[in-house]
Amino acid sequence: MCESKFKLDARAGLFLLFVLNFAVFSVSSVVALGLLLLWSAIYGIYKKYYTATIKFALVYIASVLANFFILPKCPGVIAISFAVLLIYALKILPIALFGYVFAKTTTLQELTASLRKIHFPESIITGLSITLRYFPALKEDYYQTRDAMKLKNMSFIEKMSGLVITTITRASMNIEDLSLAATVRGIDNPIKKSSMTTVHIKKGDIFVCLVSVLYYFLICKEF
């Protein structure tokens, strides 16, 4: 993915996600939600995530069309159950698009460095970095277990049981190995942790935050 010149600071991104949440749940009109999605789409396009932006926009349009034209013609139970979900989807899409682009353009190092800057507890930051780094290992473990189980004629319950046993056993083994490695590298060292990545709030971050907050405020006021 080609990087744009301006990169939103992780703290600014988290702040905007927070404000966007409030904005989304304080408006109810399709137009207002569409305008909020448009702002997230501008961010997506600026960061060159064209495909993702188009997909989110298409889901929004499909949800609006389903709300207006398909649901009123559906039988009662189906219409009722899907209406709630579709409205919720409309509300969550602007946040989800912003969050998607933010997560894709923010590295784990930048996120942890930013969380350190806002004096987030070190224990949560360490736990978060371990969790995020463990997902690929978990995926790998799953594929290995799945391939091994394919060779045997196992029932669904046996497969689930096998998956649980291998996942927990490997997790326990990994905890031991990682703990030893992390202790050697100084995880328990009480000295303040440093980071290779330097983060700082730029004028651009402040400008984007101010313009976005103003935009969200105007939408909430108008609709």
Partner: peptide, 19 residues
């Protein structure tokens, strides 16, 4: 006090919980 091993344990099982 929560030590490194505790945090690694929490981190790894949280990953499983999250999935």
């Amino acid at each position: 006090k929560l030590y490194g091993k505790d945090l690694i344990t929490i981190g790894i099982y949280t990953a499983i919980y999250f999935v």
